[in-house]
Design a protein around this nucleic acid. Structure first.
Length: 502
RNA sequence: GGCGCCGUAGCUCAGUUGGUCAGAGCAUCCGGCUCAUAAUCGGAAGGUCAUCGGUUCGAUCCCGAUCGGCGCUACCA
């Protein structure tokens, strides 16, 4: 049994969970569910980023301490993931003691390695961005181009991480691991960043209190890089003498958005190299889910609350849509019409209706008892192809391809029924053979579709009379033709995905 | 300015060493079926594979240019 460790970014708690957060988190959940079916020992981590000036200020504005403030917001993320049926194994918060332990350890190692040094930084600082700008990056009158508010001139002593020393080591590492970043075209972007030259970056602040003090200089608080990124190590016991973080490290995939490639694919591995820690094995870089063609933002007024949509399509309908609609790595455009169209076409018409028609015919022609499949059924090859391509899709961190492959078996089964017309046959061996095949296909579909639509898979599983849980199935055996035993009671039940007509 | 990407059926996109590569899904139209959530199955229509040149026996897939869309990055006075 191999281990498989996947992370999402930790989400900054200055905003409520929105569609963008949900997208990455659902991808991670589906990917890790697939690996559990493959028999891997899986750890899926998500969490919240809770330090920094913006949180401090938001807390003050709310008349709360930062800790009180984050204690109220962090559960909103955890609850949202519960609603979306996210099976994360851990939920890390950067305000936890275990995280402070790991940050201290990582900082100290880099400091001891001589890669963190004191220097002076001066420039125009935007509180909203928590970042410095050069003169020419600002709008007229020293105004932040993003927040459209005046920036402040600061000069402070900061500790700097000597990223500039790591260019060759990073290039060498990526040369030896050409498939580390998926999809491939995103890897070119990361390499471009490295080749274009690396500047040292500031890792501490003296102007902020809400954070983790540097272990060798309490006047400084760790800035976001060493704080937030380190969560991936905190959750596996880095810096904890009673644990061995290498049980899980290096991580298999950091799932990230395309906007944070630099920090995850350049800063982070360099920090780890400095500390003598293996860089991540891989990264899955997703695009943005745009709304109306524009990046979703609170201020833009187009933020979509994923939980509102669940009421329309169900949890599985929403999960399926975000996974299937957009090729991973590309930007997607979220639209309500698109959501409904895909729900109706793939879930109501294809999958849901298939389950319904099979149950009805079994009821009418087989006395409601599911027959066993034909070992040499023509559907068996469709099932084998579906499994192979579904597996490849998940291996490539390409959910839309994986699901398309799974759905190919659903389409093949609908066609199979059409060409055999069991509803025209008299009860007997011929009907049993056809319906056994259909039930077997449905069983395999339930397993293969499980990462995307876990509740539906379990429902199908039970309706065709199988006991136990889909989550406990093991691939590839569970997708091998012939697993449906026959002799089980098949029940129809309510439509799995009622068609949306509005 | 530099580096890179993209522009293939109405829509979203596949096409991984140039020779059945002109495809899939959705949408449309026609037909079949009636077990099923007016679902499903089959068929058709639809593209000079952005434009113009070049290499080649032959290019969507190689090279150059142009138009259009985009990403990252660097900025001189």
């Amino acid at each position: 049994m191999s281990r498989f460790y996947v992370t999402t970014p930790i989400y900054y708690v200055n905003a409520e969970p929105h569609l963008g957060h949900a997208y990455t988190t659902i991808v991670g959940d589906a990917l890790t569910r697939w690996h559990r079916l493959m028999g891997d020992d899986v750890k899926f981590l998500t969490g919240t980023d809770e330090h920094g000036q913006k949180i401090q200020q938001a807390a003050e504005a709310a008349g709360k301490t930062p800790q009180e403030f984050t204690d109220e917001v962090a559960p909103k993320f955890a609850n949202a993931w519960d609603r979306l049926n996210i099976a994360n194994d851990d939920f890390i918060r950067t305000t936890e003691p275990r995280h402070r332990t790991a940050v201290n350890e990582l900082l100290q190692r880099c400091y001891d390695a001589g890669d963190i040094e004191l220097d002076t930084y001066s420039g125009w600082y935007c509180v909203g961005c928590e970042a410095y700008y050069t003169e020419d990056e600002l709008d007229e009158g020293h105004v932040c181009p993003i927040h459209k508010r005046p920036v402040e001139h600061f000069e402070e002593e900061n500790y700097f991480f000597r990223l500039s020393r790591f260019q060759d080591r990073l290039l060498d590492w990526y040369a030896e691991h050409p498939d580390a970043i998926k999809p491939a075209h995103r890897a070119n972007e990361a390499l471009g960043l490295i080749k274009s030259g690396l500047r040292d970056f500031s890792v501490s602040r003296t102007t902020v209190d809400w954070g983790i003090p540097l272990p060798w200089d309490e006047d400084h608080v760790a800035y976001v890089w060493f704080d937030a990124l380190t969560n991936y190590l905190s959750a596996v016991g880095f810096g904890d003498d009673s644990a061995d973080y290498t049980d899980w490290w290096p991580v298999d995939y950091h799932l990230i958005g395309k906007d944070i490639i630099r920090f995850h694919c350049v800063y982070w591995p360099a920090m780890l190299m400095s500390a003598g820690v293996e860089p991540p094995k891989g990264y899955g870089v997703g695009g943005w889910l745009l709304v109306g063609g524009e990046k979703m933002s609170k201020s833009g007024g187009n933020a979509v609350n994923p939980l509102d949509l669940v009421d329309t399509t169900g949890v599985d309908g929403f999960r399926y849509y975000v996974l299937a609609e957009t090729p991973y790595g590309s930007d997607g455009d979220f639209t309500y019409d698109g959501l409904v169209a895909r729900y109706n076409a793939d879930l109501a018409n294809n999958l849901g209706n298939l389950a319904a028609r099979v149950a009805t015919v079994v009821g009418k022609k087989c006395d409601g008892v599911g027959p066993a499949p034909d070992p040499s059924s023509s559907l068996a090859t469709a099932a084998a192809d579906a499994y192979a391509n579904t597996a490849k899709g998940w291996d490539d961190v390409a959910p839309s391809k994986a699901l398309d492959a799974t759905w190919s078996l659903i389409r093949a089964t609908n066609a199979y029924l059409e060409s055999n017309e069991p509803w025209k046959m008299e009860p007997g061996a011929d009907v049993d053979r056809v319906m056994g095949d259909a039930l077997e296909a449905l069983r395999i579909v339930a397993v293969l579709a499980y990462p995307a639509v876990p509740e539906t898979s379990q429902a199908i599983w039970e309706r065709i009379g199988l006991s136990g849980e889909v989550v406990d199935q093991l691939l590839p055996d569970a997708a091998t033709w012939g697993g449906y035993p026959g002799g089980l009671t098949v029940t129809k039940g309510d439509p799995l995905f009622p068609r949306i007509t509005a």
